[in-house]
Every structure is written in structure tokens, then in C-alpha cells.
Design a protein around this nucleic acid. Structure first.
Lengths: 143, 143
DNA sequence: CAAATTCCTATTGACATGTTGGGATATATG
DNA sequence: CATATATCCCAACATGTCAATAGGAATTTG
């Protein structure tokens, strides 16, 4: 599985927030209820998003979370990479992994390189705002 | 990680066999040595390939494995799906998984559907033969 | 029979994933 | 100040998958 629940939930949280951002800070409890995800689990996901500057948290009564930028400033690929660590479809495409000694005449390497690019480019074409506006975005791969 | 070592190794085994198929049955030991993969581990991978009819095994002295069809008859996507079980990038795109009750107005679902298609189409464009002929195949995604 | 080789079953260690629990700390309100 | 509301922080756990290894049974050739 390329993308785990962490990545999936993160996107849903961000879209939810984008759609309810008028209300200022949105408490996690509300999001958890709307999205039907355990609040405790969301906590750990949201913590990462705060650490990376995607969300801003405010403690105490009336507190909650809000987006640090406008929804169209968050590229889906970046959010996912942030949550998953890597979006490489295979271990040998992982950035920072020891370079494979067989790479020079590996028959499959070009295939993986192409796949990696395809995934990266696809996910780089959408922002949180695109996810909000259902029906607008074209999710086909067209060059 | 979308594709594990099982899928990666399987492709390398098949390409290796395609490149040495003139010799009739190729013993696993040779492939393991050439590919620098543990023979014991390859055993479990090759077993699946035999069960699915991709390879034909022959026991005893002079035995080994050979491809059941010509290299251009094996689509990379099919081989990988066979080894990995699924190539779905997210759980909710997995075939046979319980349909998500939130699917109707899920903001992220179309994104995953598009990603699933992109991956499927890309991997559907290559065969084992394409992997053999290095430099020939174009690994870019062009429509 | 002996050597080579596939087949089969089981086990292990390491790691990731999903989830839950118990507080400590900060903020707004009355 | 007291209280309710939230975010923060650390830890634990159950489950499952992945990669690899071990030991031997069955089959074929010479």
C-alpha cells in the first residue's frame, strides 16, 4: 500500500478544515465526529501537520486548529510525502537509500524510475482546494 | 511501499529467464547467483509463479524453470498484481474491499481513483520483453 | 543407487500500522 | 481564581506484513 491511513486521514482533515475555516479555529473533536475517525488517532496525525507548519494549533477554550495558508497553497503530493515519509513505489527509488550497486545494468530500474515520476507528477497536480471543489477538478492524467 | 521485494524480485527472475531461455530449464541456483538473491527466498517467489502458470518447473537433475509463454506475453502489471495481491495505492481502492459508506461524498475518493488508474495504465504498458530490450522502451508516461 | 533439483511446511526477527490511555499545559470565561 | 475546554506529549499494545532461513520430502537423470 503506497499510502496509509495517515496520509488519507490527513487529506480529509485538511479538506474538512478548509471547508470550515470561516469559523476560525476548529476543535479536533468536531473534525473527528464529522469524519468518523478516532479523535485520539487524529491527534497524532495532526501533531505532525502542526510540526511541519501546515496547521496552527491553539490551546484552551475556543481553541482548535486552522490552516496556516490558503487551501490552494497546499499541494497534495507534499502533504502526503510529509505524512508517509516517502512516496517512492519501490525501496530502490527512496531518496537517501543506499544506491543499488546493480543499478548500472538493472533491467527493472528504468521502469521504477518512470513509475516514480508518474506518481509524483499526478499527485503534484492537485491542491487541497481542488479536493474541495468536487466536480471541478479533472482526475485523469492528461499531458 | 507499493511494491515489495516479492514483486521486484519476480520481475528480475522473469527477465533473467527470458534472457537465458535458450538453455531450456534454468535451475534456480543459477538465477539466484546471477541476481544475487537468496535462493531460499527466491524459492517462495518462484513457487507462486508456478502456481499461477507463469513458470513451469521441472524437478530432478537437469531440471529448473522456464517461462510458460513468450516474454512479450507477460504484462508487468499482471505479474506484479500476482505477487503483491493488489496494486491499489490506497486501501479503499482495493478490489473486494468493503465499499466505503462515505464514498458518495468523499472528497478524496476521485483522487485515489485517478491515481489507481494512472498506476494501472503505466504498468500495463510494459512486458517482460520490454524490460529485456534496454534502451528501447520509453518509460515516460505519454498519451 | 547417487546427485541434483523442485516442492512443501514452518519458524523467526524486525518493523510498520492502527489504536488507545493517562496525564501535563495553556487559554477563555464567568 | 475556578472551571471547562483544548491542544500537547509520552508511552504502550495488538496485529500484521515482510524478508529471510531451516529442514526435509518428492522427483528425475545418469
Amino acid at each position: 500500500m503506497l499510502i496509509s491511513t495517515r496520509g488519507r486521514y490527513a487529506l480529509r482533515v485538511l479538506v474538512d478544515m478548509a471547508e470550515h475555516q470561516s469559523a476560525g479555529y476548529v476543535p479536533l473533536k468536531e473534525i473527528a465526529e464529522r469524519q468518523e475517525i478516532s479523535e485520539k488517532y487524529l491527534e497524532s496525525i495532526v501533531k505532525s501537520l502542526v510540526r511541519e507548519g501546515v496547521l496552527i494549533g491553539l490551546r484552551g477554550k475556543g481553541g482548535g486548529y486552522r490552516l496556516s495558508k490558503a487551501p490552494d497553497q497546499f499541494v497534495v503530493r507534499d502533504i502526503l510525502r510529509l505524512m508517509e515519509g516517502t512516496l517512492a513505489p519501490v525501496a530502490c527509488m527512496e531518496q537517501g537509500s543506499a544506491p543499488c550497486p546493480r543499478a548500472v545494468d538493472c533491467r527493472t530500474r528504468p521502469l521504477w524510475q518512470g513509475l516514480d515520476t508518474v506518481i509524483d507528477e499526478y499527485l503534484g497536480r492537485f491542491t487541497i482546494e481542488d479536493l474541495m471543489n468536487k466536480g471541478d477538478a479533472a482526475y485523469d492524467y492528461v499531458i
